[in-house]
Amino acid sequence: MDKIELKNLLFLARINADEKEHPEIIKKLQNTFNLIDEMQDLDLSDLEPLNNPLELNNVSRKDENNNRNKKKEFLDNSPESDDDYFTVPKIIE
């Protein structure tokens, strides 16, 4: 992984890191990839990928009002809100 790849990765993950820290971050990530890469030698071409250990079933619920409107509680948990809205910095100039 080089510095350009790391910058792209940091942007995708929406994480900032001082450029001075980049070599150390690359070293740590590379160290983990060295561990992970041990699986690359396995020939698993005949296996289907498994994304969940158990068989999943669809769960549906009745379309009825369950009176779970907790608007105030949810807004109270936000770092900043105004009336019925979450507040964020201006998006469109």
Binding site: M39, Q40, L44, L47, E48, N51, P53
Partner: peptide, 10 residues
């Protein structure tokens, strides 16, 4: 590949 390893373990 990791999901295939997961299948192999299962």
């Amino acid at each position: 590949q990791a999901q295939k390893v997961r299948r192999m373990i299962k």
